[in-house]
Design a binder for these strands. Structure first.
Length: 318
DNA sequence: AACCAGGATCAAC
DNA sequence: GTTGATCATGGT
């Protein structure tokens, strides 16, 4: 695709790269007026395979033709594209120009991953290699409630089974979009779920009560993104940490993958393995590994963690 | 048949 | 504040 430079307000064309009122170049999705959104600019640095299959999200499914599909914000989307281009076709749900901004946010279009990757690469040889292998991963900004429930399910679990559990939850409690696709359930829908049913039918094991109780707290309105945004990071963490099923590691995944805090540094068995095998660092507990990672990688600790997570799993054939 | 997976919780120290 | 047992489930 050739590069297009157009005014967003008047273009309505895919791949809009437009100048905002600040004079700074603003890059974002453009709507074709029918059903497709496209963003395209040099350095977008996008890999659908890596972004959707790196462990940050669990609901994107790959088609035989290498496109990906998922329900996001109640719409069924098909994603194609690589490197400088992301193309999103809306298969079910309302299409309008306003959705462009939501896609900009979801795909974190405002962040220059090329610049961040360059910064991280010069930290050390391990990180440099991780940047090579993981190049194309973009950290999504996912729905808070979906991220909370998903990572409660992730505790002491493996990725293929996490995906199945979440799929079961969506089919059982989410709105049906097509024969194959269901939306992630609302807090209200999940709050009325019987924990025993979550265990018996959704196969979430002992996490059933955690999911139901946490959904109730969201449904009551005690926690929402709007209220969290008005609070300090520490207050946000404290509030989320109080949710049943949310401990330190799950908390950091929520902070990172919902886009609240890109300096969050989740430590799981793979990060322990990575620190040991790649950096030769063994610390007695995950809390200290987290502190070490945050201090060492600083503002970009979250992206560093995700690159390294992808890298070490890649080494081990996952 | 044990061990593992993007750990959290609770009791006991 | 730190440590250990326990918690479903499905794959290896």
């Amino acid at each position: 695709m050739t590069e297009t430079i157009l005014l967003k307000e008047s273009s309505g064309l895919p791949g809009a790269e437009c100048s905002g009122n600040s004079g700074k170049i603003m890059k974002g999705f453009g709507f074709d007026g029918v059903d497709t959104y496209t963003v395209s600019f040099p350095g977008l640095l996008f890999s659908a395979d890596k972004t959707f299959d790196c462990g940050q999200c669990f609901r994107w499914k790959k088609n035989d033709d290498d496109s990906w599909e998922a329900v996001v914000k109640g719409r069924l989307l098909r994603c194609e594209g690589a490197d400088d281009v992301i193309s999103i076709k809306c298969l079910e749900g309302d299409c309008d120009d306003g959705f462009s901004a939501i896609l900009d946010d979801y795909f974190d279009i405002g962040t220059d991953y090329g610049a961040l990757t360059s910064e991280l690469s010069i930290k050390d040889d391990v990180m440099s290699k991780a940047c090579e292998v993981s190049s194309g991963i973009r950290l999504l900004k996912q729905d808070l409630f979906e991220t909370v429930i998903s990572f409660i399910v992730s505790a002491n679990n493996n990725i293929p089974r996490i995906k199945k559990c979440i799929e079961n939850i969506c089919i059982s409690y989410g709105e049906k979009i097509t024969d194959l696709y269901y939306a992630f359930p609302t807090p209200e829908a999940l709050s009325s779920a019987d924990p025993a049913d979550l265990t018996k039918y959704c196969r979430v094991g002992y996490r059933g009560p955690y999911i139901a109780e946490t959904a109730k707290i969201f449904a009551e309105g005690s926690i929402s993104l709007d209220m969290l945004n008005a609070e300090s990071l520490e207050d946000q963490r404290k509030k989320l940490l109080s949710l049943p099923g949310v401990g330190p590691k799950v908390l950091n995944c929520i902070m990172l993958f919902s886009g609240i805090d890109r300096t969050a540094f989740p430590v799981d068995v793979w990060v322990e393995r990575m620190m040991d095998e790649l950096y030769g660092i063994k610390l007695p507990d995950r809390n200290r590994l987290e502190k070490y990672g945050k201090e060492y990688f600083g503002e970009n600790a979250g992206l560093a963690q995700q690159y390294l997570f992808y890298y070490i799993r890649n080494i081990h054939g996952k």
